[in-house]
Design a protein around this nucleic acid. Structure first.
Length: 935
RNA sequence: GGAUGGUUAGCUCAGUUGGUUAGAGCGCUACGUUGACAUCGUAGAGGUCAUUGGUUCGAAUCUGAUACCGUCCA
């Protein structure tokens, strides 16, 4: 069979993904195995795959594939989120392009368009995940507005309302004037802005309520928002502020509107800020609202839902024509107008530049208004009191956060939690199951009919006390127009994807819940993670997952966030086409430690592609040997892929060791290479186990990468490689293939396509790599591994010596080894000779004249060559090394000479220092002797 | 303003109870192509572990302060 020059990613990706799907490997049903469950953080139904998704889902796929290969029942559930505000915004935009205004449509018409949009674009992102190789159980694909899911959300709302955890009230909310809806605190993003601080003077009035004349001073306040002045109801100062204490209780006049308001005192005011006097506008600022409630002040709203001026609540003030001329003016234009008009009155003292922060809408970017509004809330304090495990489970690691530092953020948020505003003035989403009669009385019920029943029974109770309730008819009943916050549906995700709410106690829900691991961004720890935990305890009395792996944010090379405006987010599908999915997965994982932001750099993808190439070439090399197998019988090659009959084992120092783990099968001269690599594999498998346990995935990938590239390709394959067109022992060939298979197995979770392709090309496989099972790891033989390290060290040092003496790789040499333990070199002699191109290796007891001397540990190596040698560089190297060793010895001696060290340090540490001392002394002696032979 | 994390090689980052001469990848330098691979090989250079006190026989690691950067919250 002819292999292509390079790995062709596109072909393998389509071929194997299709194959895995056909075999149903990704599908999971409950059985006797231990489940390993991940629910995908559902992307927005209309979204497209970006780098963040790529990172997130690659991680999930790695975990789920590894679990599958560990014999667990791996289940990864896909799905999408209806993302009410984001999707509705997209639909509104689409309609506008078609010349249709949302306001011209009925709710039903609008929703028809929205569903049409969802059917058309929804799920594109799920198709893209397939390109990435994600092994999701597609038969379980869920959507937060599926019929059952919708019903579950409604059920939970009604349930929480009945438990008294949901209330409706007029509160300050974050109002997005662009989408004209309330937002939760978490949906508000604070941004630094350059603004102005206006110093506005309010004049005093006398007892007769007439403004004091020119001589009468006023009180000056500093505000960034003069447009809200017409809603002012008081001026507030700090009670101990000497500048103002005599003014407390006096009255001033609000400019333009001429409302008479009091000067009050409250410790909330910061005397150092501005003038130390604060204007109170309870309708337009959260803190002012709080003060307003405390001091019994009225809230006067002067902005409508779109952020334009309204005089509706100003009628008591007999608004002037000037005031009425503001009606309909946008808040930012209004700011200028009012500032100008007050300045015209001579009541603006000064205007300063000011760096402040404003809240903006996460979705629309619009500046948020604090607005009094009638909304639905969850009483979080009470909810948490009832479900105290929400915090406890994270603190005691029954839900383990990775990295653990996220625990602090979580704790801080929970301890300062505010009520959650769950109603949104949108149409796309679960409509709130609250119903109103003609008088505006409210009941909560799943259907209109149930609501009607509730009204009837409510009335029968109330009518015994009051008699003026008109009878209710079913046609009078209207459902609340608003929908629920998207997160009010996604907090049920780990339960409801298994129908745990709509069909409690079903087999799937019982088996898969709690899920195993959640992989998500740190940015939604409050939006989503915390709330899933709350819902989990409220409805299942169990946490939704055991581990949470937080990914960082994907940034560009310069550390900037990826954004559409900057145009710095790469086209992921383009990258997959260019480099292959495996290379993309490699690139994003190799630079991505848990919880840290990731600087995305295309060069990491190149590294991934190069790794593909390396793997492919290793395959080509091994396949080249396939037809050249033979066995050595009585010094003659017997060709053919038959089992070797030679059972004699050449001398190896390890055959005398008492170590049951060593494989004693008959691999003549390559025994050491094979034993060494087998143990290296064992060692790495144990490391990997730890790294996975701690979610150090980036490190795990690097570990496998280095095992394959360095240990397998650079060392092992070179050691067993037969000479040009020479045969290879069948047993060695088979062992090599099985090593390679095992490497592919270890790498598979990270790079699924190329590993499956290579695995299948290596052998006729009875089982696909995707579902093959890991063998249990064994403890490696440390002495053997050390022997391997020594061999590598000797080879490198001798190559370096050759390099420095300008010995061309092709010029062969004779090597003399002066050592106290020749046995240690017998098993690696062949390898050594081949790797440094030595025609022969001999042992010696004395220095060999006219040679290059290399001192390694306690041994000396003499390189003899026909070429004339220049020993100056060699000498310099030795002198440099000698100095280094002497310095080191000094520091060790100093330590050992320190009585307090000897008294206090642990015995093993002292032992180590002693060993360092003897080793270094021996080494110094070796170097000195080597230098002597050069002189 | 509050909380919280960080500062280690040119860049991106490891460094798990304090204990060899602090590691990796990329980049860089030198040399090397007729059979696995130039998407490569061999070898090498490169760090006062932000600064500054303290604890300790011993500090990148523990601790105080300072400087700078980041994140979350208001």
């Amino acid at each position: 069979m002819e292999l292509s020059k390079n790995f062709i990613a596109a072909e393998a990706e389509v071929k194997w993904y299709q194959h895995w799907l056909e075999k149903g490997y990704f599908n999971s049903t409950p059985d006797e195995r231990e489940p390993y469950t991940i629910v995908i953080p559902p992307p927005n139904v209309t979204g497209v795959l970006h780098m963040g998704h790529c990172l997130n889902n690659t991680i999930q796929d790695i975990l789920i594939r590894r679990a599958r290969m560990q014999g667990k029942n791996a289940c990864w559930v896909p799905g999408t989120d209806h993302a009410s505000i984001a999707t509705e915004a997209k639909v509104v935009h689409m309609l506008r392009e078609r010349g249709i205004a949302k306001s011209s449509l009925t709710r039903e018409e609008f929703l028809a368009y929205a569903w049409e949009w969802k059917e058309k674009y929804g799920g594109i992102i799920l198709q893209q995940l397939k390109k990435l190789g994600c092994s999701l159980d597609w038969s379980r694909t869920s959507f937060t507005m599926d019929e059952d899911y919708y019903k579950s959300v409604i059920k939970v709302f009604i349930d929480l309302h009945e438990k008294g955890l949901i209330y409706r009230g007029k509160r300050m909310v974050n109002w997005d004037p662009a989408s004209q809806t309330a937002l939760s605190d978490e949906e508000v993003i604070f941004k630094d802005v350059d603004s102005k601080l206006y110093y506005v003077t309010y004049k005093f009035v006398d007892a007769a309520n007439t403004p004091l004349g020119d001589g009468g001073k006023g009180i000056t306040v500093a505000t960034t928002r003069p447009e809200t002045i017409l809603g002012d109801v008081a001026i507030c100062v700090h009670p101990t502020d000497e500048r103002y204490s005599h003014l407390i209780g006096k009255k001033v006049i609000v400019p333009i509107i001429n409302r008479k308001i009091p000067i009050i005192a409250d410790e909330y005011v910061t005397p150092e800020f501005g003038t130390g006097a604060l204007k109170i506008t309870p309708a337009h600022d959260k803190n002012d609202n709080m003060l307003g409630i405390k001091h019994g002040l009225k809230a006067i709203d002067t902005l409508d839902v779109t952020g334009r001026f309204t005089a509706a609540e100003l009628m008591d003030d007999n608004p002037s024509e000037l005031v009425l001329s503001y009606v309909g003016v946008d808040r930012f234009e209004l700011r200028k107008k009012i500032a100008d008009d007050i300045a015209a009155l001579g009541q603006i003292e000064k205007i300063e530049d000011y760096k402040g922060q404003i809240g903006t809408s996460e979705r629309t970017g619009a500046v948020i208004e604090s607005k009094l509004s009638l909304q639905w809330f969850i009483d979080m304090q009470q909810f948490l009191q009832k479900n105290s495990e929400t915090l406890q489970a994270v603190l005691d690691d029954s839900i383990a956060f990775h990295p653990a530092k996220a625990k602090n953020t979580y704790k801080h948020w929970l301890e300062n939690i505010k009520d959650w505003c769950i109603s949104r003035q949108l149409w796309w989403g679960q409509q709130i199951p609250a119903w109103y009669d003609a008088e505006g009385n409210c009941v909560v019920a799943a259907t209109k009919e149930e609501a009607f029943e509730k009204f009837i029974s409510q009335r029968s109770i109330l009518d015994t006390q009051t008699t003026h309730f008109p009878p209710v008819t079913i046609d009078d009943i209207r459902q609340d127009e608003d929908v629920l916050d998207t997160w009010f549906s996604s907090w049920l995700w780990p339960m409801e994807v298994f129908k745990g709410i709509s069909n409690p106690g079903n087999k799937d829900a019982e088996y898969y819940y709690p899920t195993t691991t959640l992989v998500t961004g740190q940015d939604i720890i409050f939006f989503w993670v915390a709330r899933m935990i709350m819902a989990g305890y409220e409805y299942k009395n169990l946490p939704p997952f055991k581990d949470v792996y937080f990914t960082g944010m994907v940034r560009d090379k310069q550390g900037r966030k990826m954004s559409k405006q900057l145009g710095n987010s790469p086209d992921l599908l383009g990258l997959i086409d260019q480099y292959g999915a495996d290379a993309v997965r490699f690139g994003i994982m190799v630079s991505s430690p848990a919880g840290n932001d990731l600087m995305f750099d295309e060069s990491a993808l190149e590294q991934g592609r190069n790794f593909n190439n390396k793997l492919w070439n290793a395959l080509k090399l091994i396949k080249m040997w396939e037809g050249r197998q033979g066995s050595m019988v009585n010094g003659e090659w017997s060709m053919g892929a038959s089992e070797s009959t030679d059972t004699s084992i050449p001398y190896s120092p390890f055959t005398t060791q008492k170590d049951a783990d060593i494989d004693h099968s008959p691999f003549t001269i390559h025994k050491f290479a094979i034993d060494w690599f087998a143990n290296k594999l064992d060692e790495v498998k144990i490391n990997l186990e730890h790294q996975f346990k701690d979610f150090r995935l980036s490190e795990a990938l690097k570990t496998v990468y280095s095992l394959i590239w360095d240990d397998f390709c650079s060392w092992y394959l070179e050691w067993v490689k037969p000479g040009f067109e020479q045969p290879i022992e069948t047993a060695v060939y088979k062992k090599t293939v099985s090593f390679f298979e095992e490497l592919m197995q270890l790498l598979h979770p990270f790079m699924p396509f190329i590993t499956e392709e290579i695995y299948q090309l290596l052998n006729d496989q009875s089982i696909d790599l995707c579902v093959s099972q890991y063998a249990k790891e064994k403890l490696p033989n440390k002495a053997l591994l050390q022997q391997g390290e020594l061999l590598k060290q000797v080879i490198s040092a001798l190559r370096d010596a050759r390099n420095k003496n300008q010995l061309k790789p092709k010029e062969s040499i004779t090597l003399y080894i002066e050592t106290a333990v020749p046995a240690a070199f017998l098993s690696i002699e062949n390898i050594l000779a081949k790797q440094i191109n030595a025609a022969s290796i001999q042992f010696t007891n004395a220095a060999v004249a006219n040679t290059i001397v290399v001192a390694i540990e306690k041994d000396k190596f003499y390189i003899e060559s026909e070429k004339q040698l220049d020993t100056t560089t060699l000498k310099n190297d030795l002198l440099k090394d000698l100095e280094h060793q002497q310095n080191f010895l000094q520091s060790v001696m100093k330590k050992l000479g320190n009585e307090r060290f000897v008294q206090n340090a642990k015995p093993e540490v002292i032992e180590l220092e002693e060993k360092k001392k003897t080793d270094t002394e021996a080494r110094i002696q070796t170097i000195e002797e080597s230098l002597a032979t050069l002189n």
